[in-house]
Design a protein around this nucleic acid. Structure first.
Lengths: 173, 173
DNA sequence: ACAATTTACCTTAGTACTGAGATACTTAGT
DNA sequence: ACTAAGTATCTCAGTACTAAGGTAAATTGT
């Protein structure tokens, strides 16, 4: 039964890992934990969403419109984590399924806004509470207090990291 | 200059958002903060890595082998967040670039292990410390104490969520 | 009024994967 | 030895995007 134990007699040679200064080690450990946690919860989310034949990106748009109401596509793009081409692609697919409508803006003919159809609204009214429960279950390893604390820390982390993205390093290099 | 302000006279109608029980609202807020934070830091990581013409997945494998030494491909697959086909694909590309070698296992001819070439090791020796600094910068909105706390919470969250994935809901539907 | 710029959205080509199934080998049982 | 089952890896078709560039409409400056 120990199938790979036998093989390990021929396993690659041992190896010494380099070490890093405390600041770097701390940052890396946080980054790894952050990615692993996100991935695990994302799998819960995706599994729940997939039951309805929708991808995460599609659900993001549906959910946004369900909660915030009809919205111009450029505003949609700012709020979800996909590119502008991605919004077009996702909205196309949702329109094909009859969950979403594109409507023209009268005062600006470049602009369109997206709105849920009755069918889309009905779907989300049914699906979203279940989804919320699935997410709440997924994060329930943390107590309510810990969840609040984690949210505060993550918000600070996320906003800080985002702010550091824009300003290009000028000067040396 | 307020370009979209004009348009908002024709904007979609206001809308009432549904509300949810506290437990769900808390979980969703945490999930959003988690995803946003991960995305922002991931952009720092990707930007740093891209300077060397490598993707995140490729870097993950290189970094793993750099720190842990040669390893069987199935072990690699367990440690990075990609599928088995993905590992093959990524390793192929790294081999093509001369950064990695596939070696046969003598006692089990099904198995192969991957090892950095001298060139790969040299690349990572140069690149990884910079990368560690980039990540440390990206998360530096949190104090060292906050980073530790966040790491602990995220680890608990991630492991808990992962543990809840396996057990399939048996029974109805 | 007219060119230049900006903004909004879409199209196209390409990328980095995933998932299912195929292949090749090993192990266990008879 | 032969069969069955298990494991390690690869192949290939398909997916969900991204990035760059294009078109149309609005805005600005002259």
């Amino acid at each position: 039964m120990p199938s790979s134990a036998k093989r390990s007699t021929a396993a690659p040679p041992a190896h010494e890992s380099p070490t890093y200064p405390e600041r770097e080690a701390r940052g890396l450990a946080l980054w790894v934990a952050l990615t692993r946690a996100q991935d695990s919860v994302a799998q819960h989310s995706a599994a729940d969403i997939a039951r309805h034949g929708i991808t995460g990106g599609e659900f993001g748009i549906l959910e946004l419109l369900y909660h915030k109401g009809p919205m111009f596509l450029n505003e949609v793009q700012k709020r979800v984590l996909v590119s502008s081409g991605g919004v077009t692609y996702l909205v196309d697919r949702l329109v094909e399924r009859g969950l979403l409508e594109r409507r023209l803006c009268q005062s600006d003919r470049r602009a369109r806004y997206a709105a849920l159809t009755r069918k889309g609204r009905a779907l989300l009214r049914q699906v979203f509470p279940e989804h919320a429960r699935a997410i709440a279950d997924a994060v329930s390893a943390l107590t309510p207090e810990e969840q609040k604390q984690a949210r505060i820390l993550l918000r600070k982390l996320g906003l800080g990291a985002k702010a550091r993205l824009g300003p290009r390093p000028v000067g040396d290099e």
